[in-house]
Design a protein around this nucleic acid. Structure first.
Length: 422
RNA sequence: GGAUAGUUGGCAGAGUGGUCGAAUGCGCUGGUCUUGAAAACCAGUGUACCGUAAGGUACCGGGGGUUCGAAUCCCUCACUGUCCGCCA
């Protein structure tokens, strides 16, 4: 959620930056400013009214103490009107505040100045492409066929138990999952991230804090009985550790990593994009999260991208780094780098990581702040990235490393799989 | 699931209708003292909003109510502790 104060002070710059998203926020911002002005006026009146009421109430108390009942009763008469007035003003203020919030909830984050303008993923900027695309010759198989051939993943079995998008991993397929998770976690720890195991179900306040709620509840599985949501990413529970927290300056840097399953309803997805492991309702992911000082959050973002790149290199996968354009940029993000691996048999790039700086957008909702020596609390920056999402990595791993007589496990992963080949 | 007790400032913990944003202790910050430190003593120490400021308003788990006045009374929800039941 955007900061009201920033809207007041930097409206024009913001409008300019929002053009990267191809949206015009002028009317929204003007309306917010206008509503805020009237809200403040109302509050002024309300405060005065309450102050007067407080004063009278105190006098009445005093009079009672002195036994001056009659005088007290006279004063009581006067309070009725004040009460009515303050009630009305309170309602007005609440209504106005709600209108402000309604608008604020709809406005996405301000894009960083380096975000290219664009409408769709076609306008994303390729920052870097690295690694050789393997020449698999004639006999290349897509990963879902490899999975079947080597008995690694059973998609139909998952349909029987749960439905489409819930694959069952078998034998070496299951071991490969576990190996990747441990590999990713170990690498994250080496990079200074502390491992946590968060809850997989979160409450409404947490969903709101990171921006899944309101509006995107359709994306999450919801348990209505207890009003809990299955996490679509561990970003939600991890970042919410710091909801309603005021940090000290030397608490930085805060770096957490977690492995969790992730659950996404993916309503409306269809076609080749959902084939095999490309898009699932349940998948595994190792996430890295940082809470950073505003002064160096972009440096932290770069470090996170470097970390993810190193993972892909160790897995010997060809990848590219994209700077997302405004049209592809997530609602809460100010700047996002996507990392994609090349899936050699499908002959397409698959997004395996998304590394973002949310600046104060989430922190504002979370009330996640920090204090400089002697200063007032100010909002921290939140960042996160996948490091990495498993299914598409598995897809690329199977496809890219396939040979006529099996699938080679990359060197870096062998200590974890304990086998060299599938 | 049943019974019962709770939820107060960074922590502990008082406060059961008025002068309570809230005693006291601990912690923290600054000062005095000291060669330095500790101790002792003194002062300060929540958040948000409004206001140029002085100052004002709100917040004692959330929401609602009673009252001139609520941390305190009532309703409701959430959470926590304890006991019982069930269970990995």
């Amino acid at each position: 959620m955007l900061e009201l104060q920033r809207i007041r002070e930097q409206k024009d710059e913001m409008i300019k930056l929002f053009s990267a998203r191809n949206i015009n926020v002028t009317e929204w911002l003007n309306e917010v400013i206008e509503l805020d002005e009237s809200r403040r006026k109302i509050q002024g009146k309300l405060d005065d009214t309450l102050a007067e009421g407080n004063k009278i109430a105190k006098s009445i108390g005093q009079l009672f103490k002195e036994g001056k009942q009659a005088e007290a009763n006279v004063l009581k008469e006067k309070t009725g009107e004040l009460k009515e007035l303050s009630k009305t003003l309170k309602e007005e203020e609440a209504t106005t505040q709600n209108k402000i919030n309604e608008i604020l909830y709809q406005i996405p984050n301000v894009p960083n100045p380096t975000v290219p303008q664009g409408n769709s993923d076609e306008d994303n900027e390729v920052v870097l492409t690295k690694g050789a695309i393997p020449d698999l010759g004639e006999h290349k198989l897509p990963h879902w066929e490899l999975a079947k051939k080597y008995n690694l993943i059973d998609f139909e079995l998952g349909v029987k138990i749960s439905g489409a998008g819930f694959p069952v991993y078998l034998g070496k397929g299951a071991k490969l999952q576990r190996a990747l998770i441990n590999f990713f976690i170990d690498e994250a720890e080496k990079a200074g991230f502390e491992e946590v195991i968060p809850p997989l179900l979160v409450n409404e306040a947490s969903g709101f804090g990171t921006g899944q709620l309101p509006d995107k509840e359709g994306q999450m599985y919801h348990d209505a009985t207890d009003n809990l949501f299955l996490i679509p990413t561990s970003e939600v529970p991890i970042t919410n550790i710091y909801r309603d927290v005021i940090l000290e300056k030397n608490d930085f840097p805060i770096k957490k990593t977690a492995y969790t399953p992730c659950f996404r309803r993916e309503a409306g997805s269809y076609g080749k994009d959902v084939r095999g492991l490309n898009r699932l309702h349940q998948f595994d992911k190792v996430e890295i999260v940082q809470i950073a000082h505003p002064d160096n959050s972009y440096q932290r973002l770069d470090e996170m991208v470097e970390h993810v790149k190193s993972l892909l290199e160790k897995l010997e996968l060809p990848y590219r780094v994209l700077r997302l354009c405004g049209g592809d940029l997530g609602f809460t993000s100010a700047l996002t780098f996507d990392l994609e691996v090349y899936s050699a048999a499908q002959e397409m790039w698959l997004e395996v990581s998304s590394v973002s700086n949310f600046e104060t957008f989430q922190a504002n909702r979370l009330k996640l702040r920090f204090k400089e020596d002697g200063g007032k609390p100010q909002l921290a920056h939140t960042l996160n990235g996948s490091a990495l999402a498993l299914p598409r990595i598995v897809a690329a791993l199977l496809e890219n490393h396939q040979t006529a007589d099996g699938i080679n496990i990359p060197e870096a992963l062998r200590p974890y799989t304990k086998f060299d080949k599938i």
